[in-house]
Simulated scan of single mutants.
Amino acid sequence: MRKKLNYKRMEGLQGYVFILPWIVGFIAFTAGPLIFSFAASFTNYNITSQMDFVGFENYENLFTADNLFWTSLYNTLYYVLFSIPLTTAGAIFLSALLNQDVPGIRFFRTIYYLPAVLSGVGVYLLWMQLLDPGTGLVNNALGWFGIPGPNWLFDPDWTKPALIFMKMWSVGGGMLLYLASMQGVSKSLYEAAKIDGASSWQQFRFITIPMITPVIFFDIVTSLIGGFQIFQEAYVMSNGEGGPVNSMLFYNLYMWKKAFESFDMGYAMAMSWILFIIVFIITIINLKLAPRWVHYEGEER
């Protein structure tokens, strides 16, 4: 009996040794910075000076004395509110089209997925050329139909729609997820629906959509988290300035400017925790609402 206990302890110790690199990495690169940022959010800290404790002053200034905070929050919420439904619907529609057994379908799947692979500064510079109001391909294409193209990145009313339009171009990543989930739906369900006289639209609405709701839920949650962290697009396409009339001053861009331009690190830390709370609350709401519309195969209702 004692040998068994010693063996189990040794086995458990070996397990901790194997996961030790992850534990060290988590403490050093996740838990440690997290605790530090929380503590720094209550201080006046500019990286080079000693931290001066100021209590809730940073948080009070955010809500009462900083109009740019509200502007950046509004810009981010606007982007999330419109980009997430449009990209989700676009990815589902595209995956439904590509879930057909026709010649050359693999070629089209590859073509539509490529934009999701291409990312980074090069893509944003390309879109700046495409959205150029004078020589850009987008406005030229609209001109073929007699539609005057907007000034896109130079008009505060069109900067955020321009970024949402650009986001729609890269729905291939979500398309791949939905395509895989659609191909996992049992064909017997469709055969039974055809026997009952269901149309293609009815099959899609009452079979395909309910069966892929777990993937839709996963995509919405992760896309919401990613949407609130929009930074690169706005930074590159506005040269870090936030666009005309701060119309592209998203939350993360403003936080970056506070941290690395104004060197008001304590203030930026407070902003990061406000963003964490917002995303956390929205995620909890999604988790609470999920049982009402997410269907898991084999689940009794």
Rank of each mutant, 00 (worst) to 15 (best):
N6T: 10
Y7W: 09
G12H: 03
V17D: 12
P21H: 04
P21Q: 02
V24Y: 09
F29C: 13
A31P: 02
A39R: 11
A40M: 15
T43A: 13
N44C: 09
V54G: 00
G55E: 11
Y59K: 01
N61D: 09
F63G: 08
L68V: 05
L73E: 03
N75S: 08
L77E: 02
Y78T: 14
F82Q: 03
I84G: 03
L86A: 15
A91T: 05
A91K: 00
F93E: 01
L97H: 04
N99S: 09
D101P: 04
D101N: 13
I105W: 03
R106A: 12
F108Y: 08
I111E: 08
P115Y: 06
L130C: 13
D132F: 08
D132H: 12
P133S: 07
G136C: 07
G149D: 07
N151Q: 14
D155N: 15
T159H: 00
K160F: 02
F165D: 00
W169K: 07
G174W: 14
M175F: 05
L177W: 03
Y178N: 12
Y178G: 13
A180W: 06
A180E: 09
G184A: 15
V185G: 06
Y190D: 13
E191T: 05
K194L: 14
S200H: 13
P214S: 04
G226M: 07
Q229I: 04
I230S: 05
I230L: 15
F231G: 10
E233W: 05
S238Q: 06
P244S: 07
V245T: 06
S247M: 02
L249N: 10
L253R: 08
Y254N: 02
M255R: 02
M255A: 08
K258V: 09
I277H: 06
I284L: 15
L289V: 07
E297I: 15
